[in-house]
Design a protein around this nucleic acid. Sequence first.
DNA 1: TCTTTTTATTGATTTTTATCAATGTTATTT
DNA 2: AAATAACATTGATAAAAATCAATAAAAAGA
Lengths: 192, 192
Amino acid sequence: MYELFFNNLNKKVPLTGEEEEEIKRYLTPKKLRKKQYLLQEGDPCKYIAFIEKGALKAYSVDDKGNEHIIQFGLEGWIISDLYSFLTGEPATYNIDAIEDAELVLISKSAHEELLQKIPKYETFTRLNITGAYLAMQKRLTSIIGSSLEERYTNFTALYPNIVQRVPQHMIASYMGLTPETLSRVRQKIIRK
Amino acid sequence: MYELFFNNLNKKVPLTGEEEEEIKRYLTPKKLRKKQYLLQEGDPCKYIAFIEKGALKAYSVDDKGNEHIIQFGLEGWIISDLYSFLTGEPATYNIDAIEDAELVLISKSAHEELLQKIPKYETFTRLNITGAYLAMQKRLTSIIGSSLEERYTNFTALYPNIVQRVPQHMIASYMGLTPETLSRVRQKIIRK
DNA sequence: TCTTTTTATTGATTTTTATCAATGTTATTT
DNA sequence: AAATAACATTGATAAAAATCAATAAAAAGA
C-alpha cells in the first residue's frame, strides 16, 4: 500500500523507516470509479490526491457547459484544487476519474502537521510544486508562442501516455481548442 | 538596503535579527537601466532576482523575432528563468528592464546554502513558488476558458499597476495577441 | 448480441484574429 | 525646439479557428 507514493517520496528525500511510519499515519487510501468525482466545483477541496493508479482530470465548466481541462493526472502525479485546498474557499475546478483510480489522500490538517513535524515533507512539497510550476510554464510558453501543430506535436512527445489513454476531445479541451480543430490539426501533421 | 525584500520575508516567516544578518550575507544588490538585460537567452541563469524597485519582463523570442512575454515583474516580485537556474541549462528566456530597476540577487550557491541552513528560507521559497503557481494557473484558466474581453478586463482588475506602467503592446504579447487585436478588444469594452 | 453512448472525422459557413498598410500621437533624444 | 523613435489606432484583406450539421466508427452497457 502507498507503494508509488513512498517510491516518489524516497526518490526526492530519502526517508528513515520511522519517518515513513509517521507519514503513513496521516494518509488515507481511496478508490474511484471511472467518471466518479473526487471534487465538485463549489465544495471546498479537502485533499491533495497522489495518484497510485488510473487517470484523472481537473477542469472548469463555462456558462455554455463546456469543460476546460486545466490538468491531467496519471500514476505518480498529484492532483488537487490547490487554491481551494490552501485557502478553504469553494473549489473552482471539478476533478473526476477518466479511468478507475487508486489515490492516496492527504487532508489539510495532515498536510499542515506534516509540514511542521517532518522537514523532509516540506522539501518534498517544495520540489513537487516547483516541478508543477515549471511544467505549467512550459505549457504556457507554447500556448503563447507556438503554432497549433507545434503545440500538439510537442504534447504528444512530452505525454505519449496521455495521448494513448485519454480521448482526443479531452486533449483538445486541454489545449483550449474544439475537437474538430484538433482533428484537423492532426490531419495536417499526418500528411507531412 | 534590501528593505522590501526583508519586509516580504518577515511577512511570510518572521525572522530573528540573527537570521536576517545571516541571510544578508548571501545577497547582492544590482541596479539595472531601462532596456538593460538581466539575462539573455542561451546564457545560464545565475540568479533569482527580487525586485526592490522598477519593472522587468521575461520573454522568449520566436523565429520571426516576435517577443512573447511569459512574466512581468514589479516591486516585491521575484523574476528568474527558474528552469535554467535550477538545472544550469542555458536560459530559454530573456529578462530585461522595462523601467530602471533595483534588484536583490540570490546566486545558485547562496540559494542552496540558505535552503540548508535556514529552514525559514525554505518555507519562504515554498510559499513563493506556490504563489507563483497559483497565479499562473489562474492565467492559464482564463486563457483556455474565457473570451478576450473577459481576459483583458480581468487582467486590468488584477494588475492595474501593470496596465498603468507598461505599454499596451507588451500586454498584448503577454496575452498572446497582436497589438492591433488588443486595441480592438479595448474599443469594444469602452463602447459598453 | 444488440443497443446505446461516446468518440472522431469531414464539409460548409461564420466568426475571430492576424497581417499589411497608413496615420496620428506621444515620448525620447539630440 | 526639432527630430527621431516608440506607440496606439483604424481600415482592408487574408488566414485561422469555431460553429453547425451529418456521418461513421468504436466502446460500453443491457
